[in-house]
Design a protein around this nucleic acid. Structure first.
Lengths: 191, 191, 191, 191
DNA sequence: AATGAATGAGCCTTCATTCAT
DNA sequence: CATGAATGAAGGCTCATTCAT
């Protein structure tokens, strides 16, 4: 039985799941190791046999979250067939995501704000995630605006990225989707 | 004598200053009351005679920060004479501010991300600050685009606001001013 | 009532007493803060309002121990009237002390051996204590051997000091007073 | 192949070596099993298949250290041809040893001070080591002072032993060789 | 033999707040 | 108005050892 369950999900992965949920809901700093192990039903020492520190768990969480989130987005966009509809769909995804998470916002941006020290180990995961998100927009814009210069395409993709990010954080603050609507409307003008 | 010194700066204001610096640098949650009173050179009890809780101090800090920050912005924009140059100047202000604060970002957005509970007392101050910032852009756009419809003007001001916010948070992450440049370039197109 | 008891012994001094007993019996490293506060009947936070760290308590302990120990020695030597009998009396004191403490040895030497890092804050207290003990022997030898050269007197006092120290540590190991006897016999030859 | 490598050094011996270095540098109590296995590059279970406890490893370490240390001493004394020069040479050995180990002192005395419980299993190894060291001096004195009575010879050998021990611990404290010099000067007078 | 997950008590220290002085 | 002792839960992490694989 342990063999079978371990095929399904390793203890390590389970720990990332349990901790990740708490990290997202309560914030990384506000979530204690004690709380994580209580939720996971394991002992302190066991935790530290899987992760050398809370920070290492935090890193693993963000790494996993990057994959999961991107997959969620791509699944959402599956029905959209053109670069343009995919880009606009990304903002629709944002709307449904924000409603679902009760406007909790982005795990990466939240963690960014919680880590003033820019040499913090978590920062690299955040940089990676956001870089790839910008790349995602860039890729779609390159397809959609194939006739524009590279410089123009970069400017447009970056603008969309900034609008996306700004929309996330302001939705988190104002707790309604009006900012996403405004961002999406502007994006439409750019396409 | 106390009257004179209190004209210069009251104990309460001094406390807000000292705590504010720590809150901004280290984050609100990561700054302890003990550290604040040590830095301020006062006793525990004294602290609680000025503020009923750390949260109350946090509120006072954000309230004061709103005023100070806006004043900094307006001073920066003093030389700009038109709505258009004032709006673009706001992004120039952002650039110089981010360099000065070593890309620490916005105290309000950082605190937002640290307070998952949206009923947190600090949230109201953040909402107020960001609402007024959006209003500030709205006011300038209303002047600049007097011929546009109200709906159009709202859309443009909101877009600029979102670009401003997104630029802040991404500058904080990537630690260079390229995002502000991109945002400013887009704003230029809107004016 | 609190006023009166505080005249007799402050909480801080009581804490040093309680901790000191544990430090001596179990060793500095093997005594936890939790155990100290349990024995003292106070809360964790209270402890840290009196001492900024366990190390600070350790320093205070050794500082106090130096005074107390020297007083014990001087009291023991009160009946001895000449430098010679005082020196030999010091070894008699050692005998009775070792019996009383069940051969636990010297708190300073024990702590020395527990602190490999020679920059450890406790080390200075140990150096001070042992320096003053050597000085104590020096003073008595200077009186007893007033006709000898300074160099000779220094050599003799240092020898006695080394014999004293060696006798302590070996008594601690072999758990009988034979080493003290041998040391004392040698000291007799030097006087 | 395992046979050949085991001729060179068994896993057990390697473990003693690795642990011993840590025990000596950091102290027995301050060195954790985890640190030992990390340094040795083996797993927890492997460790406990070689030693039933940390204490058992400690015993093995001291047992080995006794042999190694004595060998180091004898090698150092190889060039000394008389009992007298061998005894004085022992103090010269002490000087060079203390310099080499950065005044870390004697592993046996350090461990003695870390083990308040005199029934501790490590104590026996320490007793054995120090007893043999005293015997070593006794042996040389018996040769050198063949004309003295046994009682006199015992007194002299014990005195030298105590001076040696006292010199070790005070060199550890004061971090210079002056105590060894003084002890050696006194020993000269006894020969 | 060797692995490393599991245990749970313990490490030192800080948390925000209260309250008697 | 100021002081700082008092609280006790919580912070992240290590301890020596066991045991199923």
């Amino acid at each position: 039985m342990p063999a079978i369950t371990s095929i399904i999900k390793s203890k390590r992965e389970e720990l990332i799941d349990v901790a990740g949920e708490l990290f997202y809901k309560q914030g990384y700093n506000s979530t204690g190791v004690q709380q994580i192990i209580s939720a996971a039903g394991i002992a302190k020492g066991t935790f530290y046999s899987h992760f050398k520190s809370k920070e290492a768990l935090g890193q693993a969480w963000l790494k996993a979250r990057h994959t999961v989130w991107l997959q969620m987005l791509l699944t959402f966009l599956d029905s959209k067939k053109t670069p343009k509809t995919k880009i606009l769909g990304t903002f629709e995804f944002l709307e449904s995501w924000m409603i679902e998470c009760d406007m909790r916002g982005c795990a990466f941006l939240n963690t960014l704000c919680e880590t003033p020290d820019h040499e913090n180990a978590l920062r690299q995961e955040i940089v990676t995630h956001k870089s790839e998100l910008r790349e995602f927009f860039q890729h779609l814009i390159d397809q959609h605006h194939g006739d524009h210069s590279k410089k123009e395409r970069t400017q447009i993709a970056t603008t969309i990225f900034i609008l996306f990010e700004g929309a996330i954080i302001e939705t988190q603050l104002f707790r309604d989707n009006s900012m996403i609507e405004a961002a999406k409307a502007q994006v439409k003008n750019l396409l």
